[in-house]
Design a protein around this nucleic acid. Structure first.
Length: 585
RNA sequence: GCGCCCUUAGCUCAGUCGGAUAGAGCGUUGGUUUCCGGAGCCAAAGGCCACAGGUUCGAAUCCUGUAGGGCGCACCA
């Protein structure tokens, strides 16, 4: 770690050790009271109990040893025993140049090359993607980028829902509608048609109709379950037809994810691990973990110190079909074999928490995943509308993902036409910029919330361009780009610390801490907060300090170098959030 | 019934390992442009951190209880 506060922590910790106090009490943080000092250490107060001395006395002892250090401008004690620290401008400047102005802004290497598998897609085959799929994609893809940046090798998997009951619902629905299709003729033995009988349009209506019918009629539901089982047993006609709609569906998903600018390394699904299920279950039977219960084959996941009842995970339903718990387990068999990851992170709705707990316990019990691999459910809140109930469009339906994106982009385009009324941008440029702005608004609005709390899907807020938004940050970055262009050729060298830029330089030195904090609980909102502060600080600096008219060449060059550094930081942070910065806007 | 999560400004949310005067954005009110891009900047008003106890030198943060809300609990994902 090479943030400035972590450097100071090293210095102060040494002194705590010298005084035979616990090393961790030497923790130095950015001050809560910038009017008093830049940094603070609260350890003297905690040490009082251990050392059985007055906190102020301990603070005095520590401060006596700190005063000689060249790093500090002032070292003071305040209140009950806060140690307030302010560094010299020279030290601040050298730290800036030696760590923050290096290739990755002092980013810590947390991953050390270890592998992390991320699972953040989960779209269902045969269903049009809607706004409900947006959170996992945005959060997951951002985590992928952030974790790669701090030294992990990441592998992301879209993990499609392609093997469960919804598949049987669609197949049975088609069989009811088109009983004469060859796919449904059990005696058919020739070659099935190469051409798909279905288009993506068909799916918009097909699944909702089938799902509704199954809910209303138990017999219809049984039919769907039986079709699911037949598919899982790879009944020829079903399987071929399923392949057709897999292809159609995946193509459309790829378009959706491409317009969101979300990437996956693997396009796997539940069905891909089908052949691993039987051997896995055999092994579980051998170890006596798989047991018959109420007609189903289950694995118990209770533990003796449980404070609650936790139901067993069902491996095979009584009709012999598998559910997603089983495919999730088998997927872990595959992931362990192929990648040996140190962590596997599932970015999925918090409502699935119990499911993941069951799966995690089951694979740990079965020895499929060793203790050395951490399994994490990074859950996020339920998506509600502004009235606090599950989100619906004004017409009461689900909002399709591409319609939503289109809305945001369209709104950006309108704003762009206002600003660039003189039409010095081509339509293509405008569309490109509007896309970047619209996507930035959506992604930033989503990521800036702590992922665990429920999510208010507020269209106006998600596509707003003012205040704490993606477009605001883009705007600041674009202003810097414009400024640097106007300044002409420059070699960026030293950044001189002065009163006008000290605050922003101090902020820049916290970047390594920000990354560390973001990765601690997989919460990109911490990074959002940082990049927003940075943009805000820049904007303030920009308004108070006229750069191009600066007469002193050294000062001007320093300002420009700082602007360049801030721009690079903003672009990097936004990149980690999955947001691209345009040249103009 | 059991369990998990939540409750912070009018609204939407931050608040990391317990630290000093709890912060943003929106909204409201006022100011700001002969000058680098005003999607901006400066400022003000706005808080019983749901409530009640407890632990602590110190609690929005930890513990217990209460109220309100959300969610989950065997063949859906």
């Amino acid at each position: 770690m090479s943030s400035l506060s972590s450097r100071l922590t090293e210095i102060v910790s040494d002194i705590f050790v010298q005084l035979e106090l616990p090393v961790e009490l030497g923790q130095v943080d950015v001050s809560d009271r910038p009017d008093l000092a830049q940094f603070q250490c609260n350890g003297a107060m905690s040490a009082a109990r251990i050392a059985k001395k007055a906190p102020r006395q301990i603070a005095e002892d520590i401060v006596a040893l700190l005063r000689d250090r060249v790093e500090f401008e002032t070292v003071e004690i305040a209140g009950p025993g806060f140690i307030n620290l302010t560094v010299t401008d020279a030290y601040l400047q050298s730290h800036l140049q030696q760590t923050i102005m290096t290739d990755r802004f002092g980013a810590p290497n947390l991953g050390q090359g270890q592998t992390i598998v991320l699972d953040y897609g989960g779209p269902n085959l045969g269903k049009a993607m809607h706004v409900g799929h947006i959170r996992t994609a945005i959060i997951g893809d951002s985590l992928r980028k952030i974790l790669s940046y701090v030294g992990y090798k990441t592998i992301s998997d879209v993990h499609m829902g392609d093997w469960g009951t919804p598949m049987g619902m669609i197949l049975s629905e088609l069989e009811i509608r088109y009983p004469n299709w060859v796919y449904f003729d059990p005696d058919f033995s020739g070659d099935y048609p190469q051409e798909t009988p279905l288009t993506i349009k068909d799916f918009e209506e097909l699944y909702p109709t089938a799902s509704k019918a199954c809910k209303a009629d138990p017999d219809r539901h049984k039919q769907a379950q039986s079709a699911t089982l037949d598919l899982q047993n790879k009944r020829a006609g079903y399987y071929v037809l399923w392949k057709h709609f897999t292809n159609v569906s995946v193509e459309s998903m790829k378009e959706n994810y491409a317009s969101l600018d979300v990437h996956f390394d693997l396009w796997k699904g539940e069905s891909d691990v089908h052949d691993l299920i039987a051997p896995m279950v055999d092994l579980l039977k051998e170890k006596s973990y798989a047991l018959q219960s109420e007609g189903a084959l289950v694995i118990s996941v209770e533990q003796h110190n449980d404070t609650k009842e936790i139901p067993p995970l069902i491996l095979y339903k009584k009709d012999g079909a598998v559910m997603y718990g089983t495919t999730d387990m088998a997927t872990l068999v595959e992931r362990m074999n192929l990648y040996h990851p140190s962590k596997i992170i599932y970015v999925a709705d918090q409502r699935q928490h119990l499911h993941f707990e069951q799966v995690f316990r089951a694979v740990q019990k079965a020895g499929i995943v060793p203790d050395s691999t951490e399994l994490i459910h990074a859950g996020f809140g339920t998506m509600n509308g502004t009235d606090g109930t599950p989100f619906k469009t004004r017409e009461g339906g689900v909002m399709k993902l591409d319609d939503f994106l289109e809305m945001a982009i369209h709104k950006s385009l309108e704003k762009l036409n206002e600003v660039h009324a003189e039409n010095d941008l081509s339509d293509k440029e405008k569309n490109d910029i509007a896309t970047k702005i619209g996507i930035s608004a959506i992604k930033f609005a989503d990521l800036q919330n702590n992922r665990i709390s429920d999510y208010i899907f507020d269209l106006d807020r998600l596509t707003s361009f003012e205040g704490k938004t993606g477009p605001y940050i883009l705007y600041q970055a674009v202003r810097i780009k414009s400024l640097l262009k106007k300044a002409g050729d420059h070699s960026f060298k030293d950044i001189l610390v002065s009163e006008s830029n000290k605050e922003i330089i101090l902020l820049l030195t916290t970047f390594p801490d920000v990354l560390e904090g973001t990765c601690r609980n997989y919460t990109p909102h911490i990074l959002c907060d940082y990049v927003y502060s940075l943009a805000q600080n820049f904007s303030s600096f920009y308004n108070h300090c006229h750069i191009l008219s600066e007469g002193n060449e050294t000062v001007k060059s320093s300002h420009l170098a700082l602007c360049k550094l801030i721009l690079d930081q903003i672009e990097t942070c936004m990149g980690l959030l999955g947001i691209k910065v345009p040249e103009r806007m």
